[in-house]
């Protein structure tokens, strides 16, 4: 199968994730969309790795997974504490950090 097709899939997944980030308000959904984008990137990286015949892309994919895992931990913690204090998971309600 042509590896370029994986790239098309990755682009599709990334766009779905990006659109989700932009239009949804619920923090959890937002979060899942971000994960979708990250994994789209991973897919692209692995596909590149295959296309170029070296392992660089796969190594970076591992890095991304680690970063994503760490991000999930921090992000979920923030969302939970936000929900506790405001009883809402909408990101637009948390707009206090502005000048």
């Amino acid at each position: 199968m042509n590896p370029v097709n994986y790239l098309y899939l990755a682009a599709l997944l990334f766009s779905i994730g990006a659109t989700g980030v932009l239009i949804r308000r619920n923090a959890i959904v937002l979060f899942m969309c971000v994960e979708l984008m990250l994994n789209a990137c991973n897919l692209a990286l692995v596909a590149f790795s295959r296309m170029h015949g070296n392992l660089d892309g796969q190594i970076i994919a591992f890095f991304t997974m680690v970063v994503a895992a760490a991000e999930v931990v921090v992000g979920l913690a923030i969302i939970v504490s936000l929900f506790r204090s405001r009883h809402s998971a909408s990101v637009d309600d948390a707009s206090l950090m502005k000048l």
Binding site: V91, D92, K98
Partner: peptide, 17 residues
């Protein structure tokens, strides 16, 4: 310039994209 900093996470995301 500081008006751009409106606190809405998604508008930041738009500018990033």
């Amino acid at each position: 310039l500081r008006r751009l900093q409106n606190g809405f996470a998604r508008s930041y995301a738009v500018s990033m994209f």
